[in-house]
Design a protein around this nucleic acid. Structure first.
Lengths: 121, 121
DNA sequence: CTTCCCCTTCGAGCGCACTCTAAGTCAAGC
DNA sequence: GCTTGACTTAGAGTGCGCTCGAAGGGGAAG
């Protein structure tokens, strides 16, 4: 029950392929990830937690370049907390706008569904 | 005050560029659009209405190939109302799931914002 | 010792949805 | 009549986020 996971084990836990996990590391989104004696990646729990949060940013539509910026700030250290907060707050606003737009669009789709339901019945 | 609009006038009314409007026509998503004596597109109000609804489908994440399928059914005629309804109902479910996922992700982002707000204060 | 499988790097390739280019047409304004 | 500018076409190009391929390494099971 080691605390370290291989790339495919991490892929099984977060919604990313092993290929994508390696690519994220190349981009600097995570890591540098520790290696075992054979050079294989050994993800620590904090790496997996980072990835889980990055997935939330990705799933809510944050571009990869903005995720990179966010992680760069983490790597600089605690002095960047304020800028990280700003990034998240402005991203939050975009997510709220996105939800709002989807709810409006859903109303139009529902209206169309009603139309076809009546036409079909 | 003609009822017909040029490609750039339509681009001003729906959220699509003139280039994209011509591309949508090539894909069969709209049209065939009428032409004036010089061969320029003249969009009728029903064309614009079709485009507005297609934008709702696109904005809610429907792939272009599915929009093409939907429009093909419209072109076949009234006998396809049931299948069109099915497409919209299953798409509706995807949109609801999408909103739900965004709301869950938003909670995590809010939690992180709270963390940074406390760390920064 | 051989087989098998997962791992490594790094660059190329892909699918999507546009987005733009080139070469040419047409009508209106000066 | 010439210029300007919006339009036409078909096809090539772009940006994003992966996704895959090739070539090779290492270790554990039989």
């Amino acid at each position: 029950m080691g605390a370290f996971l291989s790339v495919s084990e991490v892929a099984g836990q977060v919604d990313l392929s092993a290929h994508t996990l390696r690519w994220y590391e190349r981009l600097g989104l995570v890591g540098p990830i520790g290696r075992d004696s054979a050079g294989r990646r050994r993800y620590a729990e904090q790496d997996v937690e980072r990835l889980r949060f990055l997935c939330k940013l990705r799933d809510t539509g944050m571009p990869v370049r903005d995720m990179i910026r966010y992680v760069e700030l983490i790597n600089v250290g605690d002095t960047t907390n304020h800028e990280r907060l700003e990034i998240l707050v402005s991203h939050r606003a975009r997510v709220v706008a996105q939800i709002d737009a989807l709810q409006k669009d859903l109303k139009v789709i529902d209206w169309k569904i009603d139309f076809y339901t009546e036409a079909t019945s």
